[in-house]
Simulated scan of single mutants.
Amino acid sequence: MRAQAVAAGFDLAGVAPAHSAGEPAGALTAERFAAWVEAGRAGEMEYLKRRDEAGELLRTSVQVAIPWARSVLVCAMSYNAAAPRSVEPAPATAGWIARYAWSGTPDGAPMDYHDDMLARLRVVEAALLGKTGCETRCYVDTGPILERDLAAKAGIGWIGKNTCVLNQQLGSWLLLGVIATSLPAFEGELALAPDRCGSCTRCIDACPTDALIAPRQMDASLCIAYLTIEKKGMIAEELRAKVGRQVFGCDICQDVCPWNRRSPVAVKQGLMTRTELVNPDLEQLASLDAAEFKLWFKGSPLERTKRHRLHRNVAIAMGNSGDRRFAARLERWSASEDAVLAEAARWALTRLAILTEESNLAEESKDRL
């Protein structure tokens, strides 16, 4: 099936066994995931905490949610683009949207990678069914499956210290899709990738919120991607300054990874980079009304976060910019009927005042020298 996966537009494919939590090979994954949830590191992501009728977490093993599954075909697709990284210099007025959300059609329309990848998976699934007649089920981030764990077991790459799947040739800019099957995984198919992170800790050191609490361990409730996409309501005040200019997701731990320096630019038929989403202007994002938000983002990953949450994130980024030109917008938002946006705007105004004062003091000190 690897050949069919590549023909469908995937860069990598591999097969992982669907071990149950009761098997030695699956027990460690099950224990670690259960402990992670129990420690509260899933934040408000309730879908990660779903259990079956017996009270077992669905994601502890593939067979909890899909009892007939015996193997999983994992398909990976690179989404690296020929564009700047979030850690490179950018205008103070620019926000950051995670790289994976830049995709669009050749005519510039928004596109959600879930839809594109699912269509590609269906092609692979059809070829598989034509040969075997087995049971199958396709998922792209929608099923009760730990895709990264399975990707590592399928030989796609190793789990890096930033908890992303890392491939020696493609880096970590990988989107994952899976096909659960009733076919057994033959031992001859399995080939684990060696861990090549070595002593490097750049991702851990670079994380602004210290979400990477240890190598390969993340507290998702502190992750900027979680805070700007999944987190509803107010972002904790002590984390807002650390969010920086991120308005949707975060690429920092991947941008600093040495393996991503070598990652080739992905070229996929039917997929283009929407350049207007690279270092987007904060004021332009702030000015989007409901109709304009729909035009820009309907059918893209940003649709999920909704306009009111995006504007909450934009307000925080404006405060962190130190640019007083945003004060007028923030003043208007501070009187908004949306209590979360109003509170974020008030915080941002205070943050702007602090950064302005610090800048003035620095200039005075420079002048005295």
Rank of each mutant, 00 (worst) to 15 (best):
D251K: 11
K366N: 15
D11R: 08
R346I: 12
T132W: 10
R85N: 06
T136R: 13
L166Y: 11
L271H: 03
A13K: 10
K298F: 05
L58W: 14
D107G: 05
R2S: 05
M1N: 04
R51S: 02
M1C: 11
P110I: 02
L341S: 11
A291C: 06
S172N: 15
R329W: 13
A317H: 05
E283I: 00
E276Q: 09
R312G: 00
N313V: 05
P89G: 02
S103E: 10
G160D: 08
Y47I: 05
F10G: 06
Q284T: 02
R346N: 13
L129W: 10
R325T: 08
G26T: 08
L57G: 02
A290H: 15
A362D: 10
G198Q: 14
A154N: 13
M117L: 12
V124D: 09
D289I: 07
V340M: 07
R51Y: 01
P208V: 10
E238C: 05
C197T: 08
D205W: 05
L150R: 00
I204T: 03
I145N: 05
R329A: 11
R122N: 00
P24D: 07
R312V: 00
S221M: 03
A342H: 04
F186N: 14
A180E: 04
N320S: 14
K161I: 13
A335L: 04
A39D: 10
A82N: 06
A83G: 08
Y100C: 10
R202N: 12
E189M: 14
S61W: 06
A241Y: 00
G108P: 09
P17K: 06
M117R: 02
E88F: 01
L128Y: 09
A76G: 12
S61Y: 08
P106M: 01
R85V: 06
Q254C: 01
L288T: 03
G157T: 03
A266M: 12
L271Y: 00
A27E: 08
A65M: 06
R368F: 13
L183F: 06
L175R: 14
Y139N: 09
P301C: 04
S182E: 06
I145M: 03
R304A: 14
E147Y: 02
A54Q: 09
T350M: 02
S71F: 15
G43Q: 15
S287D: 06
A286D: 03
R240M: 08
E56K: 06
E147N: 00
L121W: 03
V72Q: 15
D195F: 13
K298V: 03
R137E: 11
G143Q: 07
R120T: 07
M234L: 10
E363G: 14
P208H: 05
A119V: 07
R245F: 08
R329L: 14
A362P: 00
A211Y: 05
